[in-house]
């Protein structure tokens, strides 16, 4: 009981994940600013934003469904945080590994996107409804390439648990070189998952005000922003665990530093993509995902099948 509470509250629960997500948001914004030749926000900026938003007055629109409006941010934060439990951090096994947890993690990462859709829908404002329809359209476009890109390494490792994949590539590090197309595809698809440029179509502030979060304010908006940051950390950890097989099971402190370097590198790649590319239109995004990303992800699966067949003989 005591250990479970420690897991939920301190590590790897809300306190650890909260600090890590604030660090991730700061890194992302600072890199974005530096790449645009700006100074960028000070280190405490995400914390100040969070405290300010959570102490503001909260307005629930009269036409919105009050119960859903209040509950959805908590669902988003809870499912994004839960996904973190099944991803290995410094050792090759996660806290609670079980077979096929890769699929569970991917579905837990889909739940926040669904809550964004429902949040926009239940706030019953025109802009937020357009935003939520765009969220769903985008979900159908990036989800398939993202899943296939992560299933390729799983096929080669012959294991559908993230801990199993991590320990396979830890023993055979050169095998990770076959997964480079999958890494590229999952980096681009992760931009869609996290709703960042060039795929920030659902909350395009120049077209549809605030997108799905138009009506959200105060602490509910703070929770939604927090859950997007947690999602960023979880996606970076997942990509790092599957595609960068650098673990030190023997030494937790060195392993944790390597883990930080790995996720900051993934966040750096995501920030470069966000800064360098402009927003696409929704139909350009869908056709890009199905015409370019999905075949590349299929190529990844094919490479892994061929390598596995060659190794078997």
């Amino acid at each position: 009981m005591g250990i479970a509470l420690f897991d939920i509250i301190v590590f790897p629960g809300f306190i650890f994940l909260g600090i890590l997500s604030l660090v991730a948001e700061f890194t992302d914004r600072k890199l974005n600013a530096r790449l645009q030749n700006r100074v960028g926000p000070p280190w405490y900026q995400p914390l100040a934003d969070f405290i300010k938003l959570s102490t503001k007055e909260t307005i629930v629109p009269e036409s919105a469904s009050s119960r859903m409006f209040r509950a959805l941010p908590l669902f988003a934060l809870a499912s994004a945080s839960t996904a973190f439990l099944y991803i290995p951090i410094w050792s090759t096994t996660s806290l609670f590994p079980f077979s096929c947890d890769l699929i569970v993690v991917l579905y837990l990462l889909t739940v926040p996107t669904l809550t964004f859709f429902l949040a926009g829908w239940f706030s019953s404002s025109l802009y937020s409804e357009i935003g939520s329809i765009r969220t769903m359209t985008q979900l159908f476009a990036y989800e398939v390439p993202l899943y296939m890109a992560l299933l390729g390494p799983a096929i080669l490792a012959d294991n559908w648990s993230i801990s199993g994949i991590a320990s396979y590539y830890y023993i055979h590090p050169l095998m990770a070189l076959f997964n480079i197309p999958g890494l590229l595809v999952s980096l681009v698809a992760a931009q869609g998952k996290l709703e960042r440029a060039p795929f920030d179509i659902p909350d395009a502030e120049t077209e549809i005000v605030g997108g799905t979060f138009t009506e959200y304010n105060g602490r509910f908006l703070a929770f939604f922003r927090m859950s997007i940051d947690v999602e960023l950390v979880v996606v970076a950890t997942l990509i790092a665990a599957v595609f960068f097989p650098l673990f030190t099971p023997a030494n937790a402190i060195v392993g944790f530093l390597i883990y930080l370097v790995k996720i900051l590198f993934v966040i750096f790649l995501l920030a470069v993509l966000r800064t360098a590319l402009a927003r696409l239109r929704i139909e350009q995004m869908v056709s890009f995902c199905w015409r370019i990303l999905a075949p590349l992800a299929l190529l990844q699966v094919l490479i892994d099948l061929i390598v596995k067949g060659v190794l078997a003989h």
């Binding site: 000070p42 502030e205 605030g210």
Partner: peptide, 12 residues
């Protein structure tokens, strides 16, 4: 953004 100022689309 040095001062934390961000332009938001929604008055909320």
């Amino acid at each position: 953004e040095r001062f934390g100022i961000l332009l938001k689309g929604s008055p909320r």
